[in-house]
Design a protein around this nucleic acid. Sequence first.
RNA 1: GUGGUUGUAGUUCAGUUGGUUAGAACGCCUGAUUGUGGUUCAGGAGGUCGCCGGUUCGAAUCCGGUCUUCCACCCCA
Length: 453
Amino acid sequence: MSQKPSLPKGTRDFGPETMSKRNFIFENIKKVFQKFGYMPLETPSMENLSVLTGKYGDEGDQLIFKVLNSGDYLKKTSVEDYQNGSKQLMPKIAEKGLRYDLTVPFARYVVMNQHNITFPFKRYQIQPVWRADRPQRGRYREFYQCDADVVGTDSLICEAEIVLMINEVFELLGIQDYSIKINHRQILAAMAQLAGGENETAFYVALDKLDKIGADAVFEELISKGYAASNLEKIKPLLKLEGSNEEKIEFIINTLGHLEAGQNGSNDLQETFKLLQQFDSVNNHVDLDFTLARGLSYYTGAIFEVKVNHVSIGSVSGGGRYDNLTGVFGLDGVSGVGFSFGVDRLYDVMEELGLFKEKAMHSTEVLLYSFDQESMPYGFKVLNALRANGIKSEIYPTQVKLKKALNFADKKKIPFVLLLGPDEIKNNTLCVKDMNSGAQNNQTLEDFLSLMS
RNA sequence: GUGGUUGUAGUUCAGUUGGUUAGAACGCCUGAUUGUGGUUCAGGAGGUCGCCGGUUCGAAUCCGGUCUUCCACCCCA
């Protein structure tokens, strides 16, 4: 009985070609994280649901993949539980879930290891996360996040360094046209205050849609959430702000400076810009955007989002400062700031822009072919020598027609094929075929090694 | 979670108001005098038409369900 195999919705295989491109992205991100003093961390795929739930809001909780208890998972349930619906039944049949992001597991780790950690603690983490979302282009149910966070300091140097890291990663990946949108939660809070509404979250959510649905629709939504039209007029000029980052900050100070939150927010941003200047970072793609809100409710300070211009993909990176992430796990007063790259989206962006170079492929450089079984040992000797010199090489393992081996090399884009037979053994040479030009000649192993180096 | 959309050979797609044996291109395999790939030529293999059920003398085609794909909303990387 055979059946057609299939993949769960929203998951993907990554073939060799895709993987070498993905690894190119991973390696460069890792390189930059390490250069800035971040240390690697990995946490389990599964966390206890008590750790995960309540951290992402109601919507988020629903998107957590629950793991059914092992064994007889109905043992702890009763008929009443079943009749009361899934919400009541769920905690009795599942106590673990797949991780939804890397930040909450990190917070959990910090709390559990608080006595062994020296602060400020910088870690990076590159692992898959899972969301039971409905998949779309650039949205999957299993995807990787590349997080870097530093906790235990409120220094704005961290914010400035995040900008520097993003710049460096994008430089390495060859992405040139992008902008790092930056805003501050306190500025948003001051704006909400000025607009005079009760529901701050509704304010952020509506504001975040500005570039998508326009100012009028945003105001409409806010009015329906209980904001007074007359008050909204006061924040109108803030949404249409043009000019340099310095000019925008000036404007904020003038309009929101009388509010404590506005004061705090603009001070932070001003200080961050000053630091960037002191780092000699001038052309850093930073763009103040007071409409940037970001969904995650735990951000309290600066927030970032990176958008690559002129591509159809959403944001490829984002992050921000949170004052009390570990508070829910009983450790107060640990301020942190972090950000994350979305590899899957970066991949799509680079593919769309054609930024992957042939060089990124890690394929075989030399294929050895022997004309008969007796020539094989000679091939092994050559193979050893090539590998000892760090050249990626392989020998065609079975006795086939030359045609087939050349075809194989062609498909795998292997640039050189060594043809080995009685003649070559007798003269102690290699018949080297250049697959690009088709030319071939006889040379010694030493000559070939120096050609390849 | 709400609304819509898609599914036919390895891949991209045709397939008439329901009617015999479901097609094409590309790819794949074999061969064109035995140590020479990409081009050409000749031949060949490959499909329970996503899955389950219903209507019908008869279903790739119509209907229902289910899974999958993509899109919008919600939210998000």
